[in-house]
């Protein structure tokens, strides 16, 4: 018997029914299976805290508040036109070289990087030498001040972790109240309506559609492992700068 069979058999015999036969043989087993199928397909939402269930403007404000509490810094702009200048500014203020690395994400291409004449924009995954990575968030969560990024052809995961500074562009429209709404949106990537708290019909994430990596990031990296003193800048970025674009 394989290890798999042995483990599954032990689990099944532990769920012995009152009739003494293993759950696998009982008529009730169909019911068990149906219960599991239903849960996987409908993906019911549980308790959603009231904190994030707000109208748009207040939701964006809560996101700012929670992200700041997690030690992220925030800039709020009204168009993509302003993003390149904001990034240049960020670099200048911190005496960083005028160089960034980013993925090929189409949303980043909307930014007029060329206007920043001295800014060196490199593309592709990081190999550990970049000081600043720039990404575009898939979504954000007001309840906790988190940004949600996922991997894909144009979005290297290394950019989220190797650079010292991580700059993330967030569309105000993509700021959801809660994590559950982000999962709905991910199931139906183009359906931004979901972020406002709606829910696409039927859950059941297709594994093929789940990106290799989904990063939910709340503030810059930190450690409290030495004498329980929380220090920013452990192995991931020392600083997280969020640029909210509210058009």
């Amino acid at each position: 018997m394989s290890a798999r069979e042995a483990i599954l058999r032990r689990i099944r015999s532990a769920t012995l029914g009152p009739d003494g036969r293993s759950a696998g043989e009982r008529a009730g087993d169909e019911q068990r299976k149906a219960g599991v199928r239903a849960r996987l397909e409908t993906a019911p939402r549980g308790v959603i805290p009231a904190r994030g269930q707000l109208p748009r403007a207040e939701r964006v404000a809560l996101f700012e508040e929670m992200a700041s509490a997690a030690s992220a810094t925030i800039a709020r702009l009204s168009s993509y036109e302003e993003v390149a200048a904001e990034v240049s500014n960020y670099l200048r203020e911190r005496n960083l070289p005028a160089a960034i690395r980013m993925g090929e994400d189409g949303r980043l291409a909307r930014v007029p990087w060329a206007r920043e004449k001295t800014l060196d924009v490199r593309k592709g995954p990081s190999e550990g030498t970049d000081l600043v990575g720039v990404s575009h968030a898939f979504a954000a969560i007001a309840e906790t001040g988190s940004v949600v990024l996922h991997s894909g052809a144009d979005n290297p995961t290394t950019l989220n972790f190797l650079p010292e500074h991580h700059v993330v562009i967030v569309d105000a429209d993509a700021i959801a109240g809660d994590m559950e709404s982000v999962w709905s949106a991910l199931r139906n990537e183009t359906d931004r309506e979901n972020l406002a708290g709606g829910r696409s019909a039927g859950g059941g994430q297709d594994a093929a559609k789940m990106p290799r990596t989904v990063n939910v990031i709340t503030g810059p990296s930190r450690s409290g492992d030495i004498e329980q003193t929380i220090l920013l800048g452990a192995h991931g970025p020392r600083a997280l700068h969020l640029i909210i674009v509210d058009t």
Partner: peptide, 23 residues
């Protein structure tokens, strides 16, 4: 730790995809 969320919550599904630049 008394945080609302830890800093990094990461969902990993399989190896890198054909067109993923890293992973």
């Amino acid at each position: 730790t008394g945080q609302d969320m830890s800093v990094y919550t990461t969902f990993s599904t399989g190896p890198r995809r054909a067109d993923d630049p890293d992973g």
